[in-house]
Design a protein around this nucleic acid. Structure first.
Lengths: 199, 199, 199, 199
DNA sequence: AATGAATGAGCCTTCATTCAT
DNA sequence: AATGAATGAAGGCTCATTCAT
């Protein structure tokens, strides 16, 4: 009954689909999922309202695609840092790099992150993507650490936890700004925890 | 011009207001803020649509009230645990209690937590409440630790960070269920980090 | 089925009913019929919402009562002026008095007048009251003019028309304020028309 | 953030916008502004509720547009009559034409006129339009009268007043139907006043 | 007689989605 | 493939009126 969603093969179409995703990305970031309507997405993408439903099943479908590129945007840089880590391992330096990059990523994406994270509660697919992102990061990082000589039991658990801590700290820094907190000192503490964890 | 909001003094009225808050609490938890409409809240509270606006300014006002009791629900038990901590201090035991209680609280409230947290991005008042909750917990906990003899510099930063870590772990445990993670082991690791932090 | 409307005999009740009418009078004047709600009327009258429906059938019924006292407020002073007019008749002076009093009344009641007048279009009872007001004024004035020696045919038509003209002028002066109009001069012109009419 | 109002250029769209205005025109006439809801307007215009907000900002915006065409409907015919007045001037005939046309216009539009006029009290834009209408008529008429040789001081004031008188009479005739008034005679009287005014 | 809490129909408006072109 | 006008269900909120006390 309903027109099937086009899987665009031609370059023009792919480009257009990406523009819509990009517009969604921006708007969801700026005003959240419920603060955005499809007409605005279309407008910002420079396409008509109707054609959005040629490329996406519904509004949620755009969100899913936004989520995908969000995950890439977050995953790639972190994976890259870890990949380049080399012997002789300098845990402290690595920790610092990861922290700084996570903060940077948070600065760019934190609103969207919150929006997506909240939707994960209600939407199974969104939740699944988040979990898989964490899986990927954890796995990649664990492998690399082992490869560069880190010897520690429970390495997966530690990596996973470490990422959570870093994320938590990044969020704190970017957002909450409790006046009584010295974020530079806190960073050191986080760094020490990480180093301690993998020694 | 606008009808003033009743400030219910009589027991019956307070009860009714609480019923509405409770209904909001449940529905926001189950289907999120945007998935809930005022008619449903009224229905579940066993009142008419109209009277909701006798007790609350608007839908968002219900959310603010839900947030308030949510914060109490989270703050009270944790504060209680810390208050009862006594000399000679057993950091390991205290850490465990806090972790377990946080998990328990998360199990009851995590969906709502996410919903509220996401709205903090858009709503300044919601954000402010969250920050103040963290402030309260951090302050209360820091004081108590000092009182029972914990000697450590940067105690505020450490407490704050510790709470984040615990929270992060609790969320992980309750929600994400990565199959490759051994959550019991992770718990031990978290516990060790905390103990190490304040030794 | 519905509780009959009380016709208050006791003084206290009459007083209360009048307070409600007065409150209605003020509010309808200030923000119009549709800009006023019954709760506000009750509040300003210092009574409960419920009791309003003990004295009045519905909101419209209040309007009807307001209309009645409005009519008295307008009718009495004008009637009074004409009654006091005496031989030897000074048409010019009488005209001036009527014009000035009409302006004064308009200043106090013009918004209400508009509101009521507009409702007359949809509400037969309101319309009837307006017509009867005009009847009363016309009749009273005609009689008096004849009594004091004005000899003119079509006296009823002329009086009626005269009142309309004065009203029209009063409205103009109080409200419209066209910058290019010299209202003092216009007043003279109106005055002359009236004098001419009954000479 | 808010969806932009379409400014329809295509004929089809203009037609549709006009249909909505026409429906508003009729309904506001029949049952007043507050007696009309947007769903009814849409229904009578043969469109969906939603599209109304594609063409208009809100319900009041429809009213403003209705007001505009109302003003044209009233202004054009009167302006036309005056334009065609020619030397040698026959004031009596001109007065009669204006009176008759005003009555005719009143018959078609009086209910709407009342509705609009009442709203002018609350709505500045509506009020401004009414004033500007009067300005236009007065100016146009004054010019023409001078052009065709009417020599009189205070011509603007007189024209303005004259229009008010005619309007007042027209309203009287169409609406009030006081049984004791002979409207034919009254018309003569009005006519004489006008002639006298500009002689 | 009086209170004011409670009711629920109704209103304006938005927006995801569809459809004629 | 593309447009953007059109749809209509749904939501937040108001308020005249009723009812329990």
């Amino acid at each position: 009954m309903s027109t099937a969603i086009r899987v665009p093969q031609q370059e023009r179409s792919i480009e257009k689909k990406n523009k819509i995703i990009q517009a969604g990305y921006e708007l969801f970031s700026e005003v959240g999922y419920y603060g955005t309507n499809t007409a605005e997405i279309a407008k910002r993408a420079g396409v008509s309202t109707g054609i959005v439903y040629g490329y996406f099943e519904d509004k949620r479908d755009i969100l899913i695609c936004v989520l995908e590129i969000y995950i890439d945007k977050v995953y790639e840089p972190l994976a890259h840092i870890v990949e380049r880590a080399d012997k002789p391992i300098n845990l402290h330096k690595l920790a610092l790099s990861v922290i700084d990059k996570t903060i940077e990523l948070h600065e760019q994406n934190a609103k969207l992150h919150n929006t997506l994270h909240s939707l994960a509660t209600t939407d199974e697919a969104v939740n699944a993507q988040f979990i898989s992102l964490e899986n990927k990061i954890t796995e990649q990082m664990s492998k690399q650490l082992v490869k560069i000589g880190v010897k520690s039991d429970c390495i997966t658990e530690k990596v996973h936890l470490a990422m959570n801590i870093v994320q938590s700290y990044a969020h704190e820094t970017v957002f909450d700004s409790h006046s009584y907190i010295d974020y530079a000192k806190m960073k050191e503490i986080v760094c020490n925890i990480l180093v301690e964890l993998f020694r």
